[in-house]
Nucleic acid binder design. Structure first.
Lengths: 254, 254
DNA sequence: TAATTTTCATTTGTGTACAATCGTTGTTCT
DNA sequence: AGAACAACGATTGTACACAAATGAAAATTA
């Protein structure tokens, strides 16, 4: 169900590419939960800090807590949810330091990804990348920003698949959802984050076969993403003190 | 228990550094199993391809299968064991392609790690690194090659901890055990793989503060490791055809 | 005898029940 | 009135039992 939905929106079954080494871990049931929660995060339907209660999820998806637990365990290993010993699972809220770290790691990983992908770029692969970006553009133009943002992530993951490096791909499959949470926390309202034009640019540079230029193009793209975020002051949605900081008699720090 | 053993042999509780973000995921019980299996792999007491039956592990460690299952799930996410839907868990056997890929990723990751670690290197940190290598050297000199190899991995992980990049650190904590399995499969008997001298060299270069030189030193170190392995022909321990390939009437390929 | 089918033992997947823990609320005492 | 304390409810941790699936051995048939 969840995967069908994804296939319908992305126009192609990206899941087949995404989970060659993940599907091994579980059977079929928690895969759905895992994907569903992940999609909700990528679509910004689930926000950083949200508590994921096992019973509720079990109810919603009509599965037992055993299945829920496995899905949550996978998400926690991906550093997308945070599990505390007797306190359950919550979606992570990356602080500014962590956000910078994740974006920094992406620059390193994706430099190598785009270099290898350029080396291996066939006309078919380039066409597939273009289709992916066109899909992203179409969704954004239809004001479906949630799906657009998710498809934006799919572009980066597809690129990592084309690099044929499953290790780097698995890293990116964790980093992309984490980035989605960072965007949710630190996006500035005025800017349009969906920079599909830059995705087109990257593909165009890749088509020339100039790997160094492609790497530079990707670096620029990721830097733009970081620049559009407000990483200067700590956000604390859920922190009542921060939310009502304007009220008089603020209790200093903490 | 498992961690105490580790502390006794490494002379320092590295576990405290290693698990700041892992411990969150589980309570305390499966942590022991996870660490114990990981240590066994790092010590080469568990070989690639070994089947890990849930009931047996539950018996050995006197826990329920629920706990075993969680530990195995974590190991499978680390790509250290392979879980097939109804066929249980086995320790992975990286093929040549995968081995090269993992070593390649290590070069990328550790270049950044050693660069950052050099930037942040305090005299105390350098002393700690030297203690770590001295410990490694002592164990190798006492013919305790299993522990020596494990401590060799600890050096790299300690370095990643000093880089203060928890994302890269978590990658390395997966890559080091994977490398241990690669060494187990592809090591050449004549060579001595425990190159603690090169570890000393890296620390010395770091002490000069020349980050680029430190990166080069690390790259050289990892290249030496790869050179010492026999990655030219596929190994298949467990594949009887490969083991008895010299016998007449070999059934062609496969 | 060789191939196919059937049976069975082993192992894993899933659900549920019970125990333990934590946070919150309400109470009591100073 | 404020703070410490106690009890409750809600949520998670663990174990066990049963169902499903797999692989191999045994039996049947040609």
């Amino acid at each position: 169900m969840g995967k069908n939905t994804k296939a319908a929106t992305s126009g192609r079954e990206l899941g087949d590419i995404l989970h060659p080494s993940e599907k091994q871990a579980s059977q079929t049931q928690d895969e759905r939960l895992y994907t569903e929660i992940l999609d909700a995060i990528l679509d910004h339907r689930l926000s950083p800090g949200v508590k994921l209660k096992e019973d509720e999820l079990a109810d919603i998806f009509s599965v037992s807590r055993t299945v829920v637990r496995r899905a949550l365990l996978r998400l926690s290993h991906d550093r997308i949810v945070d599990m505390q010993p007797n306190r359950g699972a919550t979606i992570i809220r990356p602080d500014v330091r962590k956000a910078r770290e994740i974006l920094g790691v992406r620059k390193i990983i994706e430099a190598e990804v785009v270099r290898e992908a350029t080396r291996r770029a066939t006309p078919e692969a380039l066409a597939e990348l273009r289709r992916c970006v066109e899909n992203e553009r179409d969704h954004v133009q239809r004001q479906q920003h949630g799906a657009g943002l998710r498809l934006s992530g799919d572009f980066h993951i597809l690129l990592s698949a084309l690099s044929e490096n499953s290790t780097l791909q698995s890293y990116l499959m964790e980093l992309v959802p984490q980035t989605s949470l960072i965007i949710a926390m630190y996006q500035t309202p005025q800017h349009d984050l969906c920079s599909h034009q830059e995705h087109f640019d990257i593909v165009d540079v890749m088509a020339t076969g100039d790997a160094d230029a492609a790497v530079a193009s990707m670096a620029e793209h990721l830097q733009h993403l970081e620049d559009k975020l407000d990483l200067d002051n700590e956000r604390s949605p859920g922190d009542l003190y921060a939310a009502f900081a304007h009220v008089k008699s603020a209790k200093s720090t903490k």
